[in-house]
Amino acid sequence: MHTQALVDLTPAALVELIQAKHRQLLKDLPGLLDVREQELSSAFAAAKEARSTMNEDPSEANIQAHDEREAFRRSAESRVYRLRDACANTEQSMAYWADDTEPWRELLDARDRVDAGQAPRFKSKKKNGGDTS
């Protein structure tokens, strides 16, 4: 995006862009979650089987196979949790940004303060913190 377009971007337009992103995520994530859950089921079954085999014959090869499958199960489980979190966050965000009462308008107070000539909230990286007084 060109600088001028960036500077001219209105809050409503940005909300539209955010909603578009979340709509796309809501479309993509459930399918991905299904795939990951199936992957987790397979990983869980494989790890369980490897554990049984290892208990019957605790050879070096069986122990190594069990460790690999257990690691895969843990990573699959982690991916599923992240996806579930992402789905929950996306739904929550969608609900917020698509709210007809436009609650995001209160977030423009900082902009209005700067427009009124006040200093911004963030601290400058200058040695004196940007204080020019």
Binding site: N89, Y96, L107, A110, D112, V114, F122
Partner: peptide, 24 residues
């Protein structure tokens, strides 16, 4: 993708900061 999904509080803060910088 999944890695880019942030909690709504983080998005709200980024949204406010974006327009503050725009005013700046």
């Amino acid at each position: 993708g999944v890695e880019g999904v942030k909690p709504v509080e983080v998005e709200r803060a980024a949204f406010a900061e974006f327009f503050e910088f725009q005013a700046l």
